[in-house]
Measured scan of single mutants.
Amino acid sequence: SEEKKKAKERLERLGASSELARELLDRANGNAEKAERLLRKLL
């Protein structure tokens, strides 16, 4: 979806690899905010 694509791009801008961004979104069930929080914990 367009929303998921935007979320993935945002995670990548924050420093996630394409693969990591995809994994985070999967774990967050597509929830962009939750995926971002997970990423911030990792960085």
Rank of each mutant, 00 (worst) to 15 (best):
A35N: 02
E12S: 04
K5Q: 14
E9F: 00
E19H: 11
R27K: 13
R13F: 12
L42E: 07
E36V: 08
G15S: 03
G15L: 05
R10D: 05
L20W: 02
E23F: 05
A32C: 09
E2P: 10
L39V: 00
L11P: 00
E23D: 11
E9P: 03
R10S: 06
G30W: 08
A28W: 04
R13M: 13
E33R: 13
N31T: 01
K4E: 14
A7K: 08
N31H: 06
R22F: 09
L24I: 08
E12Q: 11
G15T: 03
E12T: 09
R27F: 11
K5P: 07
L14F: 05
E19F: 02
D26I: 09
L39P: 00
S18N: 07
G15Y: 01
S18L: 06
E36A: 05
R22Y: 11
K5S: 12
A32V: 15
N29L: 10
A16L: 06
D26M: 07
K5C: 10
S1G: 12
E3K: 11
K6S: 12
E33T: 10
R27I: 13
E23G: 04
A28F: 15
E2W: 06
R13E: 11
L24V: 05
A35D: 02
K34H: 14
N31I: 06
E19W: 04
L11Y: 01
N29E: 12
E33S: 10
K34L: 15
A35F: 04
G30K: 02
K6Y: 06
E19C: 13
R10E: 05
E3M: 09
R13S: 13
K34Q: 15
A21T: 03
S17I: 04
E3F: 04
N29D: 12
L11Q: 00
G30S: 04
R37N: 14
N31W: 05
A7D: 08
K34C: 13
N31D: 15
E19V: 05
N29S: 09
L14E: 02
A35E: 02
A35V: 02
A35G: 01
G30M: 05
S1I: 13
R22M: 15
K8R: 15
K4I: 14
K4A: 14
E23N: 08
E2D: 14
E9M: 04
K6Q: 12
R27G: 05
S17H: 05
S18T: 08
R13Y: 10
L11F: 03
A35H: 01
L20R: 03
L11K: 01
K6F: 06
L14W: 04
K41P: 04
D26T: 06
R22K: 14
L25C: 07
R27V: 10
D26Q: 11
E3W: 03
R10Q: 07
K6G: 10
E2F: 09
E33D: 14
E19A: 10
G30E: 03
R10W: 12
S18C: 08
E3H: 12
G15E: 02
A21M: 05
E23Y: 08
E12D: 02
A21S: 04
S17L: 05
K5H: 10
R22N: 14
L20Q: 09
L43S: 05
L39T: 00
R40I: 14
A28D: 00
K41M: 13
L43C: 13
L14A: 06
E9L: 05
N31M: 04
A35S: 02
A35Y: 02
K5A: 12
R40A: 11
K41I: 14
K8H: 14
K8N: 08
E19N: 08
R37P: 00
A32M: 14
K4C: 12
S1F: 13
L42C: 12
